[in-house]
């Protein structure tokens, strides 16, 4: 199902995790997971999973600048898609905003912020969730022209 045509229940199902960056923590082996899992792949049935809210702090593990997207994201092009390694361990796929694409580097420190992800056409769903921005505060004191909603 394309994001541009997905129905309401599918969006609502992940709102908590998407708004608050909730993942899973295995109380047996201590591993953290994002997205949340019902079963710890290391401990399987011996594991005990609990919900955990991540700090939203992390570093860019890898990144790319997207110049050809699906329709729902066309208005943001070119936009940065990155794998962010959270301080708690798991990696998250997210857009990097509030800086120029050429400023993004592997190892750059970033923090989660709450943003619009996309908007469906014809009065459809407006989806919100996390994106990441530089954690040095540079986004607060200048106009970058890359700020996406």
């Amino acid at each position: 199902m394309a994001v541009s045509s997905a129905g309401i229940p599918q969006h609502w199902r992940t709102i908590k995790e998407r708004y608050r960056l909730l993942g899973a923590h295995c109380e047996r082996c201590g591993s953290n997971y994002f997205p949340p899992r019902n079963v710890c792949p290391r401990c399987r049935r011996r594991g005990k999973m609990a919900q955990v809210e991540f700090s939203g702090k992390g570093k860019v593990y890898s990144y790319t600048v997207v110049n050809a997207s699906s329709k729902a994201f066309e208005q943001y092009m070119p936009y940065v898609v990155a794998l962010v390694e959270l301080d708690e361990g798991p990696r998250v796929l997210s857009q990097i905003v509030d800086c120029k694409p050429e400023e993004v580097k592997i190892g750059m420190e970033v923090e989660a912020c709450f943003r619009k992800i996309f908007e469906q056409e014809d009065g459809g769903i407006i989806s919100y969730g996390f994106k990441f921005r530089p954690s040095d505060g540079s986004w607060a004191c200048r106009e970058t022209g890359q700020r996406s909603s």
């Binding site: 890898s62 790319t64 050809a68 936009y79 857009q95 592997i106």
Partner: peptide
């Protein structure tokens, strides 16, 4: 839910591998 939903396309995820 956790890749395409956030704007990832196929070229972009392979680009993440290439960059790394």
């Amino acid at each position: 839910e956790w890749e395409a939903y956030f704007g990832a396309t196929f070229p972009s995820v392979y680009a993440l591998m290439a960059r790394r």
